[in-house]
Design a protein around this nucleic acid. Sequence first.
RNA 1: UGCCCGAUGGUGUAAUUGGCAACACGUCUGACUCUGGAUCAGAAGAGUUCAGGUUCGAGACCUGAUCGGGCAACCA
Length: 567
Amino acid sequence: MTTDHTEESGKEKKSLNFIEAIIEEDIQNRKNDARVHTRFPPEPNGYLHIGHAKSICLNFGLAEEYNGKCNLRFDDTNPEKEDTEYVDSIMEDVRWLGFQWHGQHLYASDYFDQLFEWALLMIRQGKAYVDDQAQDVISQQRGTPTRPGIESPFRNRSVEENLDLFMRMKAGEFPNGSRVLRAKIDMASPNMHMRDPVMYRILHAEHHRTGNKWKIYPMYDYAHGQSDYLEGITHSLCTLEFEVHRPLYDWFLDQVTESAYRPRQIEFARLNLSYTVMSKRKLLELVKKGYVNGWDDPRMPTIAGMRRRGYTPASLRAFADRIGVAKRDNTIDVGLLEFMVREDLNKITPRVMAVLDPVKLIITNYPDGQTEDIELINNPEDADSGSRMVPFGKELFIERDDFMVDPPKKFFRLGPGRQVRLKGAYVIQCENFELDEQGQVSTIYCTYDPETKSGSGSSQPKVKGTLHWVDASKAIDAEVRLYDRLFSDEDPAGHKEQDFLEFLNPDSLKVLQNCKLEPMLATAKAGEKFQFQRIGYFCVDPDSKTDKPVFNRTVSLKDNWAKMNQQ
RNA sequence: UGCCCGAUGGUGUAAUUGGCAACACGUCUGACUCUGGAUCAGAAGAGUUCAGGUUCGAGACCUGAUCGGGCAACCA
């Protein structure tokens, strides 16, 4: 969304997206009494993902922006697929994102009685009929996009017979699939959806809310618009694939009302994110086949997964705002999402010391047995965040990456003879190092200059690098889970010949076991977020135990050194 | 051979009575820095899918084409 600063007024004038433009025009014309009432209508058959987050932010955001209301309505017209488990997770996700729906949460199944009455009305008006044909016959008669369909032999039976049959369908007299109720529209319509679409099918299935009351269930096209109408929805937002359904949405409304009030369906392009998949089917497959550890695996683009990963609601909302909304197909660079979290986390997150891949460093001239407390600022971006004391001693751990036996000139860290600052403490100089049998650096020996303590103000040697560290004797052990993109291909689902699973990134999860953290982190609670100084943003995973903290990497810090090395 | 959408830098989104294309991410420079983070300063990068037309003037309007997406569940 672009803002433009008008100099005279000093006010921000936001440019409108196409939906806002429609809404403002409707308000202008006092359409529907100038009300704005949207709804978020998930089917409770899976977990919400970032694409839904876009829709949630849109619907609830528009309601807020125009002093309107937004309902949460579960589209539960298919008892075979839907479950209460999902209802709960969806409500949790919406609330977590920071939105509150208007009144109670609602269900399409709340309207089954009314929908049935209206169906009866349509039958009486000769606008609907019961078709006894098998599914594949009906399907064949529907024709193709380029060839008109043909009319069902049952299309013109009497109102009485239709009424009788439909009542008996409701009563459960017929088996699944034996009959349907169809709208009588136009089998020759160039729009496939207008070729006598099915309104009701027979389903002897237990519904998660209505139990065994119903043996027939309404189809989406029939139920959705009527539900909107019953709730007083004014702007019914959905994704592009429903564009061709709109004439049907309007047609069904025409059959039951002549009132001036009308909900309007508006379609927008769904979100696509690079390096991931978004379809429920594919996400389900990842879970079912065990490629990830459940719906809330931090690598999943689900809201639950992102929450566990450490994303904040504010960052997701900012993301939704930034990507805007339009009708053209789009693929958002996942880098933008990452930028949004960093931006938020940078402001709110306490900085802490954590060494992921530790190597021992001994300060040879530091007195044996001495320790001291070093004061560290919690967050330089937040003046109110204060400071804390962190233990420092003769033996420390530093990051293995921060030392090179034979460093290049541009390497600003430690190497034989080189000087660096230990963050918040002293300047040290590397005097020596030891290798183990594998040739890996096992211990680094340094000397320190007591005069260089942080804040001492004394003229200090200029050093190029500053390292993070932890006191070896006081550090706590932790497990750290490093997450990377789940797929190594930008568009894993976009290959005709190859299955998306072939593009799974084998390194999407790296578990580090011997990480060393500053002591204060022992008491961090699940969900708490930190910046591991110089590394990235991390949060405490629910798997965390008091004696075994577990941290998830939300996103790494921007790393120019790594970038330089790639080139 | 049908119907419905869409097309603006690498990626998104703007340009609201037609007035010489803006913002964000990314990229590249440089400054600063006790996070190679953040911040700050700057740069490159599109002439708006193409061809006609209307107009003094078109990314916006008209016509045609091209390309991309969607539509043939008793799914939503």
